[in-house]
Design a protein around this nucleic acid. Sequence first.
DNA 1: TTCTATTGTCGCAATTTGCGACAATAATAA
DNA 2: TTATTATTGTCGCAAATTGCGACAATAGAA
Lengths: 231, 231
Amino acid sequence: MRNFLSHIAFDSVIFGFSGEKLKILIMKYHNTGLYALPGGFVDLNENLNDAVRRGLKERTGLDNIYLEQFYTFGDVARYKPEIMQTILEANGKSLEENHWMLERFISVAYYALINYDKVVPTPDTLSDSCTWYAVDELPNLMLDHREIVQRALKTLGENLDKKLVGANLLPTRFTIPTLQKVYEAILGEKLNRTAFQRKILSLGILKRHEKEYSGKAHKAPYLYSFESEAK
Amino acid sequence: MRNFLSHIAFDSVIFGFSGEKLKILIMKYHNTGLYALPGGFVDLNENLNDAVRRGLKERTGLDNIYLEQFYTFGDVARYKPEIMQTILEANGKSLEENHWMLERFISVAYYALINYDKVVPTPDTLSDSCTWYAVDELPNLMLDHREIVQRALKTLGENLDKKLVGANLLPTRFTIPTLQKVYEAILGEKLNRTAFQRKILSLGILKRHEKEYSGKAHKAPYLYSFESEAK
DNA sequence: TTCTATTGTCGCAATTTGCGACAATAATAA
DNA sequence: TTATTATTGTCGCAAATTGCGACAATAGAA
């Protein structure tokens, strides 16, 4: 059995983009009806950031994910041992052996941006599902996880222009109109089409490739990728 | 004796502005030559943010400080029990009784902006000084505290335009040329004088008061305060 | 061949920003 | 009293950025 740092947890808001909607991964615990963000604990000999990447790998199957820490939640009000007790009991875990999980936790929150199509959502031993939910159609989340999602969205919006981070939600090659939909889903507002195109291209960090033929009756958009990327 | 959450600490980068320089408070531990950021631990029944405010009150004497959390440092490399042991021994503390301080800590870092002239820097029981240092003339800081300061500066610079946060480093009434010096100290670059004045005033959140006569042979600048403020 | 929906560009107006010009001081020197 | 000096508040204008409509260029369907 692993040995974790007590009182410290992490939670991940894992963003994906599909069907023109921004979505995140939500876990559902066995026999409890409780929904929560994917999270975990930090091994005694593990960097905090590495623990989060380990968790992401377990939930999504992906390495090398775009990841950003955005806030640490430390209010006493988030201490609800009865909830953790419910989860443990519903999973047949002994309370004595897992007493450390009943103590107060401070949670370091991260958001991750991933390519929806590459993910294989995988539940952990305590949960029976790990599923995508549109951010505007979330189930009731336990503890303060709703607030964590809100803050992740806010921070992501503020950081959106940093070197095109939004593109991490798309495949390696993507079109500018699609990227615009990502921006609009995150910011919750429509953006001017021509100004958006001009702005993105003016950054000079995208490389134009062949066109993407959608099979629809209209002009096809060009595909782009990051200049640096090989191939 | 207080009962703290194990494995969790906080560090504060407390900014002040004096003599046209940006400064921060640094503690020096008794008999060790070790310099560090002011920090502390979180009481079992205390909100993380409240713990930090309690620490700020103890070090500066001030309440109601502008405070922002900016990053949580959780690398294993910051675990150097021999340093904490040195500090405890130099202060005649028993290692048995304080063994929890020798374990690994994850540290939540905050920066605070205060009015330099209102502060009474006060050391704690482990340190013999709590002193202002210009950010470009810091002594060698222990552990990763140098990195914490760097990141605080970076984040502060990025947040500088949010509702004139920089003004928290000045008295209630201040002149625009002085505010510009604050900006320049934080950003580490000269700003255009007339553009700065126009930008700040265009925010429409400052109220103009009487002039400030410096005794120097030139036109006196106007004093400003936040519109909302009473008086 | 015509029609429809969407994309890539251009042009122009509106807004913001960089920067010099210049008048208005506040104290000192003549 | 009258210059002189250093600094501040504004204005004007050019350059850069942004919002938005116009329009040609498609890709496929009718």
